[in-house]
Structures are given as C-alpha cells and as structure tokens.
C-alpha cells in the first residue's frame, strides 16, 4: 500500500461493502480503533447496514445498496470518523478474560522448539514468556470462531514457515508475526504449532456457539501433557478446562 495514504481511510469493498481502515500494518491503536468503531456502528443500528465486522485494523460494513448509494454510505462513515479520536477510544465493555490450559511442545505441539530458536530463546524461556502473555482477540476470522490474538513480545515476530504443515488439529495454538491463532478446526497452516489446548472456539451444538468476542483477553497457562489428557477425559462442556471472568470496564 502506498505510503501517502491518509488514515482513517474509507473505501468500498466489492459491490455492497465499505471499509474504514485505521492502519495498513498491525498496531495496537489501530485494532482498538477498529473494534471501537465497529462497536459504535453496531450501536447505531443504521437501517441500511446488514452486517459489520472488525478485522485487524479495519471496520467493515455491508449495506443495502437499494436503500443508500455508495457515496452516501461513504459520507456517513466519514462523518462518524470525525466524531471522535477512535485511536484513543476505550475498548468495548463486557469483555472477558479466559485462562486456557495449554501443553507447550511435546509431540502434541511439535514446533515449539523451532519457534523458540527462531525467537532466540531456550524452549523453557519461550514457554515461560508465552505462558505469561496476556493477549487480546484482535479479530475473529478465516474460520468460524477462530481468534487472532496478540500482541506477543517483539522477540516472537517470527515469519510464517515457507511451506505448510499439512494438518494441525482443532485447539492447536500456532504462532507467527507476534500473534497467536487458536484453530477452530483441523487445518493446514504455515504458522508454527507451539501449543495444544482442548478449547473449542466454535460449538455449533451449544447456545454459546461462539464463546470468544473481539476484545476478549486470553492467557494460555502451561500444563503438563497428563493434565491436558485428564481435562480431555472430563471435558463435557468443550471449554477445555478454561476459566472465564469479566474484565472490569
């Protein structure tokens, strides 16, 4: 993307979408702005908006082109941008903190040592740092309920692998570019598989189909392989032994 772009930037997406972009690279402030702006669009309940979402640094709005022209929609969004400093807006309320038992390394997550080496750390030190990191759901996407989580420390700004790992299982915690993804289903990936959980991000059989919300925070607490096996054996609610508490506004 050209360097001379002015953010926030309002553009059309395909035929019936509009995008408010707060930055063209990952930043804490831009993600915060995207979440807050999306939250405000949701709150306003404009009749012509059919759905909205927040990605890493943008808010997306799909609208009914029969009710409002593209130009009108872009102007409406531009007007909303001018209402406040979105980059310094508090995160949405009602967020939760999840603590998710996680096995780092072992045969369950075989790329931990490799990721530690790429970060210039011993495996023990990598586990210590990752296990203490409190990361935020930056966006949910690609697959149902699947969170992108960050930021991790700059030492974990390691690239994706040049070739794909053919398949990692549901509940896999993978790492690249100072972010985690917690996989909602078995999938091939170019990210390093550093941890394994029994947490299900997509629970079609339950009322809380999507347990996580953008803005929620997670800590992936280290447990032993045996502990995870015990959790799995007794895991009737699909939470994988995770605990959840409200984050005070």
């Amino acid at each position: 993307m050209a360097r001379d772009l002015q953010f926030p930037l309002v553009r059309t997406v395909g035929f019936d979408g509009a995008l408010v972009t707060f930055a063209d690279r990952m930043s804490e402030n831009a993600n915060r702005a995207a979440l807050a702006f999306r939250s405000e669009v949701d709150h306003l309940q404009w009749d012509e908006v059919t759905e909205s979402s927040a990605s890493l640094g943008s808010t997306f709005v799909r609208f009914d082109t029969q009710r409002v022209s593209h130009q009108q929609m872009l102007e409406k969004l531009q007007h909303l941008i001018g209402q406040k400093d979105w980059y310094n807006t508090p995160l949405p309320s009602g967020r939760k903190l999840w603590r998710v038992p996680t096995v780092y390394g072992t045969d369950l997550a075989p790329q931990l040592d490799d990721a530690a080496a790429a970060a210039g750390l011993t495996p023990e030190e990598a586990i210590r740092r990752l296990g203490q990191s409190r990361v935020r759901v930056l966006t949910i996407g690609f697959a149902p309920g699947q969170p992108y989580l960050g930021p991790l420390g700059p030492e974990f700004n390691i690239p994706r692998l040049p070739s794909l790992t053919p398949m990692v299982p549901e509940g896999a915690l993978v790492l690249a570019i100072s972010q985690f993804v917690l996989f909602s289903g078995p999938t091939p990936t170019g990210w390093r598989h550093v941890g394994q959980t029994a947490f299900r991000c997509f629970r079609p059989e339950r009322a809380d189909t999507f347990p996580l919300r953008p803005g929620d925070e997670l800590v992936f607490t280290p447990v032993s392989r045996e502990e995870l096996q015990h959790i799995r054996a007794n895991n009737t609610d699909n939470t994988g032994g995770a605990t959840c508490e409200e984050i005070a506004p």
Partner: peptide
Amino acid sequence: SGQLNILSEVITPGD
C-alpha cells in the same frame, strides 16, 4: 506489489 506484506483483510464472495 508488496503482496507478502499485506495485512489480512475482509473477504466478500465474488472477490
């Protein structure tokens, strides 16, 4: 240009 450094962004059917 710069294809490998693009931030993941929203997709819509028809893209």
